[in-house]
Design a protein around this nucleic acid. Structure first.
Lengths: 211, 211
DNA sequence: ACAGACTATGTCAGTGACTGACATTCGTCA
DNA sequence: TGACGAATGTCAGTCACTGACATAGTCTGT
């Protein structure tokens, strides 16, 4: 009954928007259920549409691809990440800003453990899902980091390579944490794994050649 | 029994292997020509197969996807990258090792300017190509960097996040250089852009909060 | 040289993701 | 209440990609 006022989606108000939102959510849940029980490639978009009690055409009016359906619940995470960046104090070092801001992503993983685990496992098992995760989902976060870092440093993100490099390092840290997380079946706290991995960004220059 | 040759190039000898190699090359060239003149999405795999004078089925026996066809000439680049790593002196700092090894990729871009420019431009314009570039091509290089760095540091690349973080930073630097390169229409020397971007990896820890 | 094995290719039919066009239902607002 | 518009259903179509089977060209041992 509590409406989310101004998230990315929101469903402002009115029955029409509520129904649209409901259809969308039904599709996401139907897809997750079928993907989890049957597998990604083994599930057809028609199966998903039927389970959600809509036509296949409606499915593709809500989601551009089958892969996007799997990550349909991650829309507001991007916005949360943006807000996490502006919430950091201005005197914090840029490495700490990134590290702490990324913990909002990590926190989401712990808060939605089941769903995130499914997404990560399907990405590890299915090439097209892996590609979508990297090229769409993660790339979106990365752009958010780049923009935030560039703004903090007051530099042009096209001319100065540092924002994108730092963002790439941060995303790699998240991937490491993700792999470690799934290796343990999601039993560990993702936030701790991510924090450890993110902290290692600062160690890069300190690594010396093996004596 | 003759085993596959060690290089990914293949087609060591024998008319059969030579013909197979020829068919593969014809497909790559036909695809590049059509992609360049007509666009990626506007070109069908049947068009490509006909221009290469083979059946569509044969095309998909040589390449798993339409996207892979565009990057079909990059097989040996991965091997060259591996060799570039082992060629670096052991007393070099790991940041310098990565920076210098990556220049073999950069050198390839300058040596095959036309083709690389087409690939980058199509990736910028077409989502499915962008996804393939990131999730397949670049991910392959990244794994190569991770393995090489982990070996240099003598650490486990699963437990220690630093190899993957460094690899992610390096790939981001390459992407920055690529963007700058295409922004100038490929007139600049890619190697110089890449070197500058890669050198910025060491500056990450030095960035202080503004003022 | 020749038979048999092997392999690349052609042909054909099929699946499934995705799309355009058009009709219909349903919420909204004057 | 009636008109407008947005969401959906239906249908037909395109195209990437695949399995099955037949054929032709290449290799190998005798």
């Amino acid at each position: 009954m509590l409406e989310q006022p101004t998230t990315s989606e929101g469903a402002d108000d009115g029955r029409r928007d509520r129904k649209k939102r409901r259809t969308r959510d039904d599709l996401i849940e139907a897809a997750a259920a079928l993907f989890a029980s049957t597998g990604f490639d083994e599930t057809t978009t028609t199966d998903i549409a039927e389970l959600a009690d809509v036509s296949q055409r409606t499915l593709f009016r809500h989601f551009p691809t089958k892969e996007a359906l799997l990550y349909g619940d991650m829309d507001d995470l991007q916005l949360a990440l943006r807000e996490a960046f502006v919430a950091r104090p201005t005197n914090e070092s840029i490495l700490d800003v990134v590290r702490h801001a990324m913990l909002c992503v990590a926190g989401d993983f712990d808060a939605n453990r089941e769903r995130r685990l499914l997404q990560v496992q399907l990405a590890a098992a299915t090439p097209s899902v892996s590609a979508h995760s990297r090229a769409v989902v993660q790339a979106q976060w990365e752009r958010e980091i780049i923009a935030a870092v560039a703004k903090r440093l007051d530099v042009d993100p096209v001319a100065d390579p540092r924002p994108e490099i730092l963002a790439g390092a941060a995303m790699s840290a998240i991937r490491v944490a993700t792999r470690q997380w799934t290796a343990g079946g999601g039993t560990a706290v993702f936030g701790e794994l991510a924090d450890t991995a993110l902290a290692a960004i600062g160690d890069l220059g300190m690594v010396e050649p093996s004596s």
